[in-house]
Design a protein around this nucleic acid. Sequence first.
DNA 1: CCTCCTTGCTAAGGTAACCTGAATATAATG
DNA 2: CATTATATTCAGGTTACCTTAGCAAGGAGG
Lengths: 141, 141
Amino acid sequence: MAATHPPHIVALLYEAYLRLSDVVFQAGKAIDPRIRPAHSAVFFHMEHDGIRLSRLAEKAQMTPQAMGELVDDLEKLGYLRRVPDPADRRAKLIVFTDRGDDALRAGYAAIDDVERRLAVLLGEDGRSSLHAALTRVITDF
Amino acid sequence: MAATHPPHIVALLYEAYLRLSDVVFQAGKAIDPRIRPAHSAVFFHMEHDGIRLSRLAEKAQMTPQAMGELVDDLEKLGYLRRVPDPADRRAKLIVFTDRGDDALRAGYAAIDDVERRLAVLLGEDGRSSLHAALTRVITDF
DNA sequence: CCTCCTTGCTAAGGTAACCTGAATATAATG
DNA sequence: CATTATATTCAGGTTACCTTAGCAAGGAGG
């Protein structure tokens, strides 16, 4: 870990993640400075026809209470609404407003831009090798 | 970000980091469950002949106050001591105790083990290509 | 139908890992 | 020397989670 040691993959993964994610989070901040990185979990796990809080929490691997706070924030900011779930009166469906849809699209545009810049930097072969190696690590390590 | 989109490098980097770092953090927890992941910043940026708090904070890219808390913890746990810096009476040098040295060695052993397992999983060529690609992203993106 | 257990959400309060602002001691500089 | 800068520490705040506990509604068995 000290400077005398060569950089290990674990440390490199973290640094590389910070670099790339910062670009995406800066893009989010440009859309609306009140949106924080934590809110990305909501956008990331959203589903087209609406999603229940409990399912959103499960997908993001956090408690429904924690996810509830993020949803509260984005509801107050006008990015989503909670509507009653017709299939279960205990539940509510979280659906995006037009504003939410726009933000989601902008977020993906930022991610796609990072992907394109990576292909330029590493070559398309290099980018897809990196993709494959990371996928391998996630599934098999 | 949603399930309908293919995984992007940014997301893969984060997941891969979580997998590998978890192995290292579990090893740390086995040494002493009172050591938390945040403390790794101290071990990581330590210097052999002792280091000042302000320099440690700068290397770890956090405020001296935040680093001070981590150092407080590890001092209470007996992993390090603050000794007066002979070169500047305002400053203190943070130096590891024997216990701290042992923990540092154990931490590096865990990281080296991860590195070895990666070489098995990806092949040594694959591991070093991954290393090179990540280094490239960090320096040039 | 009624209990009884489960599920979906929310309210209240706690913790970890950071932060900013301000105080104190010492050093460096004109 | 008086001034300004640096090293640390104290106090208090914020963010992003968590646990505990409560209520409303659904589902299963007798």
